[in-house]
Each structure stands twice: as C-alpha cells, then as structure tokens.
C-alpha cells in the first residue's frame, strides 16, 4: 500500500482584489505520508493558512484555486464534485481552526455540534452516537462529559473550546487533520497542553497532520517534517531536524535565530531585517533578496528553484547556507533550539 496520503502538485491559489492579484500560494508542491506530522511555518501572510484551506477547497471569494493537483489517496480533490468534497471533509480530512472563540456556533449545544459530524459521516444509531460523543470528550481531556453535552460554547473557556473543536475534528476518524495555528489564540500556559493532546491523538491512530504555524518552537518538538514558506512559495523543506539544525535558507535561519534564548541573548533580540514585502508588488527574482544579508545581484534578478542539498532536504536559494556548524548551534556557547524551546514552554515532552 502506498504510504503517501496526500500529494499536492503545483498548487496556485490567487486572490483577485480591486488593488491587484495576491498570489497567496504560488506553485507549491509537497506531500504528506501516513502517520506523519508536517509543519508549514512562516510569517503571517506567507501563504501557509491558505495552503491548508486549499487542500479541502475551502477557499472563498475573492480567492480562487487557479491550478494544481491535490491528490488524496490517489484521487484529485480538484476534480471532485461539490457533494464528493463534502463527503471528504470531516470524514477523511478535517480541520482545526485558529480561533476557538468563533469556530463553534453559539446557538447550538456542543453535543449537537459533535453529533453533527457523526450524523453526516457514520451510520451509528442514537445510543452509539451519544456514547461516541462522550468518548470523544473524554479523549480530549474534558472531565464530566455527560454534563457538558448540553452546554453551550460560551460556557467554556478558550482552551476547553479548542478541545471541543479537536473532538469534532476527530469525530469521524479522519486520516488527515489540518490544524491552522491551533494554539495562537490561546494562553501560553494552555498552548503546551493542547499541542501535546493533539500530538498524542494523532500518533495514537497513526493519523497524519498538517500543522500550520508561525511558531517554530512548537514545531521543533512535534513535527516530523517542515515546510518553510515565504510569500507564497516553499523556500525550504526537509525533516524537522535538518531544517532546524542545518537550516539552508537564510530565512529559516533568521526565524530560528529570532527565538529568544533566555540565558544568553541579553542585549537585543535578533530579528530578520526589513519587513514582509507588499504582496501586490513582489520583487523580481528571489522574494527574500531585499532582506537577505547574503543576496547578490544574481539573486535580485533570478528566481531560485528548489534543489536537493541533502536526503529529502530541499531549498530554494542560489546560495544556501553551507553546513551544520552555521546552524543554530554555530556560535560557540549558543544553546541548541530544543534547549531554548523546552525552557520557554515548560517542556511539551515530559
């Protein structure tokens, strides 16, 4: 059996607005294996969320999926009818949204909202559905699920609501879960809990996950592979270890360097110079060139294509960073990324 669950080829999702066309996702290709957690990282507006939405064709005006193939278990999602896509959503691929305060319908009980997924995608009878709802709530760490079924979303805190959302996403036992910045809207103290919960649930049933986030710290603990996106393109992709420890793209390195190290960096925080370009007027050549310390004239004039620089490690850069020593551990005395991350979040992995 093929191990590749999802394969995206040459995806292009553009937004046609009055001011011009934004190429939110511009010729993006990647794949997700069974049981794998793929992280898509980048700054806001880099196209990562739109990529996630595109996979289940949840793009609305003025956005349009212009071209590309989205092969899920061999079938092209782009060629499915509206009804077939509805059957795919929730059952095979489900999504967890960013803001738990607005994801749930305020006028329906949470029991009903979980049950909706079951009604749509399973053939369970009433008793079985109820039991399933209770089990789901328990599995996401909500105690006393019986009393919760009849509760309304506003009676829950943000963290609890996100757990409910996770329960809904898992209700019909999907193979792939797309999580769009699932912890960004939550308190820092809750973030680690929710992430650990998600990781556990995904691994338990050998499910796959696409984790969209701007937070590299989160990613380093959970992800198997990482795609780094900038201005609609994937600039680096590879296993999590490689991308973090042996970053090849200056942007990736910039992201990693900008995570504060509480012990060491006492003076100024590292940042990536410059600001994200205006998406209506992207530069010619490499999109990152204006902010890159290593850019040459060649970079400004020619758009870099992805090339393989290691096993499964690709980068879109004319002058990628050379070796592991220049990665996060390059400077003597600097602590490794996992060390910095663990301190910050109190340890996702116990």
């Amino acid at each position: 059996m093929n191990d590749t669950l999802l394969e995206v080829r040459n995806l292009r999702t553009y937004f046609h607005t009055f001011k011009g066309t934004v190429k939110a996702v511009d010729d993006v290709s990647f794949s997700v294996e069974r049981g794998e957690i793929l992280a898509i990282v980048g700054e806001s507006g880099g196209g990562k969320s739109v990529t996630g939405f595109s996979v289940i064709r949840l793009i609305e005006e003025p956005g349009v999926i212009e071209s590309g193939e989205i092969l899920f278990e061999g079938r092209d999602v782009m060629k499915l009818s509206e009804r077939e896509v509805d059957r795919l959503r929730g059952k095979e691929i489900s999504m967890i949204f960013q803001d738990p305060m607005t994801s749930l319908n305020p006028v329906y009980t949470i029991g009903r909202q979980i049950e909706e997924s079951l009604l749509l995608h399973t053939k369970l009878n009433r008793e079985e559905r109820r039991k399933s709802c209770l089990d789901l709530l328990r599995s996401v760490g909500i105690s006393n699920p019986e009393s919760r079924l009849k509760a309304y979303p506003h009676q829950f805190s943000g963290g609890m609501r996100q757990r409910v959302v996770i329960a809904i996403a898992l209700a019909a036992d999907p193979k792939l879960i797309i999580a769009d910045e699932p912890t960004t809207a939550l308190d820092v103290t809750i973030q680690a809990q929710i992430l650990r919960l998600m990781a556990d649930l995904v691994r338990a049933k050998n499910r796959s996950m696409i984790l969209v986030t701007h937070d590299l710290a989160v990613v380093s603990e959970m992800a198997d592979r990482i795609n780094v996106m900038y201005c609609g393109k994937i600039v680096e992709t590879g296993s999590a270890r490689k991308v973090i420890d042996e970053s090849a793209h200056p942007y990736t390195k910039g992201l990693i360097d900008s995570i504060p190290d509480l012990e060491r960096d006492r003076k100024r925080l590292n940042t990536i110079k410059g600001i994200v370009p205006n998406m209506f007027e992207l530069p010619e050549g490499c999109n990152f060139a204006p902010r890159c310390a290593r850019a040459t004239e060649f970079c400004f004039g020619n758009e870099p294509r992805q090339r393989e620089i290691g096993a499964g490690h690709w980068v879109a850069c004319h002058f990628p960073l050379e070796n592991a020593a220049e990665g996060a551990c390059g400077r003597s005395g600097a602590r490794s990324l996992p060390e910095r991350v663990n301190e910050r979040s109190g340890g996702v992995r116990s």
Binding site: L58, G90, M95, F97, L120
Partner: peptide, 15 residues
C-alpha cells in the same frame, strides 16, 4: 461570513 460557518463547511456539512 462568520467563522463557525466555515468550520461547519470543513466538517463536510452541505451548503
């Protein structure tokens, strides 16, 4: 236009 509508769609709820 609300988020919960989009979330419902992602569950596969028909339009």
């Amino acid at each position: 236009k609300q988020d919960y509508v989009r979330f419902a769609k992602s569950k596969g709820v028909p339009r």
